[in-house]
Design a protein around this nucleic acid. Sequence first.
DNA 1: AATGCAGCCATTTTT
DNA 2: TGGCTGCATT
Length: 731
Amino acid sequence: MNKIFYLDKLNDKQKEAVETLNGPVLVLAGAGTGKTRVLTTRLAHLLNKKLAKPWEILAVTFTNKAANEMKRRVQNLLKIDIERMWIGTFHSTGLKILRRHSELCFLKRDFTVIDTDDQTRLIKQVLELNKIDIKKYTPSNVLWMIQWFKDKAILPEESKKFKFKFGKTLNISKLYIEYQERLKNLNATDFGDLLLLPVKIFRENLEVLKKYQNQFKYILVDEYQDTDTCQDTFLKLLSQKHKNICCVGDDDQAIYSWRGADVKNILNFPDAFKNVKIIRLEQNYRSTDHILAAASKLIENNKDRLGKTLWTNALNGEKLKLHFFEDGKDEAKNISLEIEKLKLKKTKLNEIAILVRASFQTRLFEDRLLKIRIPYRVIGAFRFYERLEIRDAIAYFRIVHKNYDDLAFERVFNTPKRGLGTATLQKIYTFSRDSNMTLLDASRKIVETDELTSNSRSTIKKFIEDIDRWKSKINKINHIELAKVILEESGYTKMWLNDKSIEAPGRLENLKELISALRDFSNMNEFLEHISLVFENERNYDSDMVNIMTMHAAKGLEFESVFLAGWDEGLFPHQKSLEEKGNKALEEERRLAYVGITRGKNNVYISFAKRRFIHGTWNFSQPSRFLSELPKENIDSNEDFFQEEDGFIVDQAEYENRIKNPNRLLFKNKENLLENRNSYNSEYNFKVGDDIFHEKYGYGTIKYIVDGKYEIVFDKLSETKIVLENFIKHA
DNA sequence: AATGCAGCCATTTTT
DNA sequence: TGGCTGCATT
């Protein structure tokens, strides 16, 4: 056995989590407690102690990023053949299994996996076939329903209970069956099926299940709190035999219930297995004391949790800084000033993040940072340019317009298939390195030699001729025409036309979209410039930029300084989650706040804006309730705070202002009064003196009309709240 | 096919 | 406010 050098780097709890190899283990790993280290070390330890062969361990994550990170780190610990291990995302693992048994689901081995776009298209077809009014039930609605149905389909009892609220007019299970039928005919699956079908296979074919149960002697799960019913079932089926399942997660960081994740999976894990060993990792290596204290106090307000308390040796850190701003612009401006200060103190921009609740908030920050020329990247936005066909097409454009682009060359050199394989590429690669040439130039030279087979030689010759011909046209025809020519003559369009797979029409559609996007630019270089910036966001993790993203996207990351913007009641916690019955949604928002705060290593800034211009209207709001849940002793602020009786923090000036001035309400029309919104346009004509009834605050009267907006005074409310919700016109 | 216009909608998004 | 969709027009 190798010397167990890696255990020395662990603390006692971590060591326990690594060394408790047999039986079910639940590792509750708080933010920044070295979760990944434990996971990878545990993997290494299993192999090192020869308890399992590489292929007898299953390790699942949610993202490719996490899976790759795990592979990289295991590789660092042990020199083993990582490719034989089952380390991957839930979906890739499901796919791997499904490929081996596709015939059990009436799929051919080479079935395709469609993306959400294609899924929507398919559903649309099914809806149209059933003569269903797409306006009433949009495909995205039905997509959602189908997803939901899939989740429930995992549990037979649940699916029996299944009665959708549109059930009378819309037979969702019929649509679901037709949709699945359609997928089967196309020899395709959607993302949901990648796990659903393996579970189905396991349930219907005991010998297949047994095979995998025997194979996977040890199972490791990352981010267990994010598993949905299907994923959990998948894991439970596989672990039944050996019961050596180690789930790592943090119930306090469960923020994906809206995507089907069920915190119950982690909360009930100890009941689902016998003799579960629970190990808590509570020593935090990321943040300083005030940050952790504030985060811990905040999360204590949640009832649904297993409970743990983070602690650290990093004492005497900075307090959290609270800032109150007039509006969103003011917030962006001051945060950017603060960033400039940090920059002067030599903080790397990479180590700074602005975290928001909703993606529309990023805009103001982008505007501001662009203006003062601080480089930034927005992480996690949906990107059109990420699609395979778009990337291929752009690679073609790049290779024509910029001859030094090796990545582009590599990408398209056998797309569409020209019969050029890795062997040929390898040779060109070596040649280009030896002669210090680009791949394109190297190919020009290499065809003069007899390095390659005559077949590939003539193919490459043709390929180069094509490229040169397109190049010669750059100044002769406009870039839009040229783009069309390239896609035509390269055979790229034809490739998708000939492609019988279900995604082909969509891809052609996207290519058209790409062409029309070119119209916004006067030449191809301008366009490529723009594109490269878009890609920059992805690739240039090493270049120094401020990070802007949602708190969801920030999970798992850490930064020297973190700006948590928009802690306004209604924005965060989000109105939608306040409207939901019970505390479930609110607790999830609180967990999100917890995730946000615990991203910061040394500095956490939290801000609130009194008004915000959202969707064309001004919104007034109160400070987020989460602000009042932060202990005063861990906070510094730009104003004196005042604790109101009901727990809301407002600053002194605002408090006095509220006593002097009546409550304000902005609204749109009569219908909206019945809605649970907190902002309204001013289209509906109330008169001064109209009575209004509020569920909680009772009767009120419209006292003023200012700027076409209404101010209302409540009879029983002389001070405290600005109330902007739950209004019913007094009959 | 391209364009224009009206109406609708607006939380979080990986695989 | 602004981006998207569906439908009607050129």
